[in-house]
Amino acid sequence: MDQVPQSSNQSDSNKWLVRILLIIGIGIPVLIELFTFSGLVSSHFFGEAPSATNDRRSETSAKENIPLVKQGDTLFSDTDYPLLVDTLRLEIYPDQWRFIMELKPLWKPNRERSEGVKLTFQNLVTQQQSLEENRVLVWTDNTLDEAEITWILPTGQRPQNAKVTYRSTRQDSLTGTLDIKRHFEFGHVPARYKQ
């Protein structure tokens, strides 16, 4: 019967290769598993229980420096003419995702003092691209109307941030125009499926 191993005369270089492969290919995995095991054991006996809170936001990533824009937020609350984010949502259609933002002035502009407000979105950045199209919203007179902007995004794209400029023109003694440039970061935008 043919039981003789066919490869007993491996060449020397092959022997070296096998040795290296065994050391790297099995040694590293064994080390990884040992680390994992000791990590699990020590965190079980000495560590605190894992927590799932978000109370650590402040210490985490830099994106927290800029507050995220959420539905219900008031934007430009430091101006005479703050804007309320009435709606912020992502509508999912089979072939496109629409990012919809509805803004509404918190109160009527004081006619004496203000001519109104112009809000310009200079771009909208998603994970993969930046839509460089200007979108402008204008409130004048006594309108408290809601204004809506819709961006049509390719499927799968979520809004990340946008560059906006806010211009309000005042007519009182302070006069002049107030120009503010801001950077909006969008956090979680609730998504809804549409057909």
Binding site: I92, W97, H188
Partner: peptide
């Protein structure tokens, strides 16, 4: 649960 599954939180 669909194309935007990863935003459900």
């Amino acid at each position: 649960c669909g194309a935007a599954h990863h935003v459900m939180e």
